[in-house]
Write a protein that binds this DNA or RNA. Structure first.
Lengths: 327, 327
DNA sequence: TATGAATGTGTAAACGGTTACACATTACTC
DNA sequence: GAGTAATGTGTAACCGTTTACACATTCATA
């Protein structure tokens, strides 16, 4: 691998008996280089186990072959797959990813962005509800918003949460549910608001009464809230949870209460994380194409970095209804 | 934030009417700077919204305030917490983390390491069974092995899998299990081998017959294998699964067969991932101090980077027995 | 008051690459 | 065979920092 001594381009040049410019040319495969010279240089490179210094290159080129990925919290089961997809795609394109957990704290996000600017990252993928266009508009590096659209001016890759929610509700109705509650996600979170809106619109269009319960996309509060919901309102026979994690929490509560799923009560989640297939009963859900989201956002960012993408793009995917045992 | 124009140290110097050396001195808070001069410089810095260029700094200092983190796969539920803890600790110390998923493919790991060397990362934390001391010995940057010990020569932070396994088996025996099977993890994986060894030793020391079934730390194969195990050998009344994911797979299979947990069969896992508390019945397990592992490995690495740590250290944590509903 | 230490500042050379430009040489074209 | 284009190579400036060194000035001490 690499020992204490690291050869520089000058060492290679000396050994090969050429100038550094020539070495650089063979390295980057550009400009004219005589075949014999190239051979000599390649030989010297091998002999010294020379690897061009990425930092020096960055300094001159103002590019680092790395991108920043800001997510709220990798511990949230939605993100590992997303991160994996991004890392994978970027790695194949020769880019390194700098990972940051922001907890959606604006101050922290801003600090992270400043940091990345000084490191010459070539682009940023961000998942955030707190950051707004005004915080980003002066930035000179490409940014894409992932999973949430931040503003019309920032390219994005996301899922149609509204339509997905309507599909979820429609399924429950189709299965004969008469009283359908919604365990909503946190306030001011884009995806949660959209899913709530979808629920409301679909319910209203069917002339059904709505029951909305607070939640924050987390398991434990969802358990508590479900307990409350079911004791307060015993005729509820369908629950649309704001995400799979909440649905799993709800299932725990429901099971604890001795209510049978899906006979007495049907439940559906949103996201399509693995957890849903692991629990009993397996969870029906609206599956987001997580890997595709990660991949597409990476490709989009790469296109912007390379200047291929000239117009602002917003990609929207549809969530896929996956029916399993909970409905 | 940062616009198209990025001020350099020369711009600051010019505006403040001093030399770049002086600006550098106030920036790094070292050497003598007259109070009045410092004021002027700080004023200029603010005025230009100047942020020192990390890349240029790296080039000269041969340091990047970043570290590499190589894990097999972030998608494996053990890793998100670990990654979070590392990122957190590093961020607080002013370091950025470069994340890589290696799938434990040696070629890829080596390539990643080469890449990091050219990027002047200050250190590496690696989780790997494939990489060996010989691949690392020529490296001049600090490395620490996480979750697995690679060799005596590489500092490490890990868990006592052997003793943990013995504790798990002892619990099952204490609960009255007569025939205890082990769903083992993948061959040649350090943690899996240690847990197997713990199982064997504890069983043998109690004069009990052993039943070992193959597995690879994954859910689906675990389900299949459990089905096989229970049809082949109906008297099994205790299962020690190599990790929690396998335990969850086993529980699914067991539930499907209509066998009641924990009355007819008890099961215990290893890891202490969140998943275990989410399923029904909640899983008994040997909880690894995942956050501590991440934190300690980061601190250890930082100490090596800063030259504080002079002797090679191996930290070993004990897994904690957590009894829940599956036993 | 002479002298050395402490304080304050600037110049220029690194760090390790890339590339504009200049200068040769060789290959075509008519 | 002259003129032009294509090919091949080197020199040196540049990217934006840090720091060794030199040089001044001020301060303290005997």
């Amino acid at each position: 691998m690499v020992g204490e001594f690291m050869a520089t381009i000058r060492d290679v040049a000396k050994l090969a008996g050429v100038s550094v410019a020539t070495v650089s040319r063979v390295l980057n495969n550009q400009g004219y280089v005589h075949e014999d010279t190239r051979k000599k240089v390649e030989q010297a490179i091998r002999q010294l186990n020379y690897k061009p210094n990425a930092v020096a290159r960055s300094l001159y080129k103002k590019t680092s072959k790395s991108i920043g990925l800001i997510i709220p919290d990798i511990t949230n089961p939605f993100f590992p797959q997303l991160v994996r997809a991004v890392e994978e795609t970027m790695y194949e394109a020769g880019y390194t990813v700098l990972l940051f957990n922001s907890d959606e704290v604006l101050k922290r996000e801003q600090h992270i962005i400043d940091l990345m600017v000084t490191k010459y990252v070539d682009g940023i993928i961000i998942v955030s509800n707190t950051i707004k266009y005004e915080h980003l508009k002066d930035l000179s590096i490409p940014i894409v918003a992932l999973d949430r659209v931040i503003s019309q001016e920032i390219p994005s890759v996301s899922v149609d949460n509204y339509e997905g929610a309507r599909k979820a509700v429609r399924l429950l109705i189709g299965k004969g549910c008469k009283k359908i509650a919604h365990l909503r996600g946190p306030k001011n979170v884009f995806t949660a608001e959209e899913r709530l809106r979808g629920y409301m619109d679909e319910m209203n269009s069917q002339g059904m009464e709505t029951f909305v319960y607070a939640g924050n996309y987390e398991l434990n509060t969802s358990m508590v809230e479900t307990m409350k919901l079911l004791t307060e309102n015993r005729e509820i026979d369908g629950i649309f949870a704001g995400n799979d994690v909440m649905a799993v929490g709800a299932i725990k509560a429901i099971t604890k209460l001795g209510i049978h799923i899906p006979d007495q009560l049907k439940i559906i989640g949103f996201d399509g994380i693995e957890l849903g297939t692991v629990i009993t009963p397996e969870l029906s859900t609206l599956k987001q194409p997580i890997v595709q989201l990660g991949k597409k956002s990476s490709e989009l960012l790469l296109n912007y970095i390379n200047g291929n993408e000239k117009v602002l793009r917003h990609y929207v995917y549809q969530a896929e209804l996956i029916e399993r045992d909970s409905t």
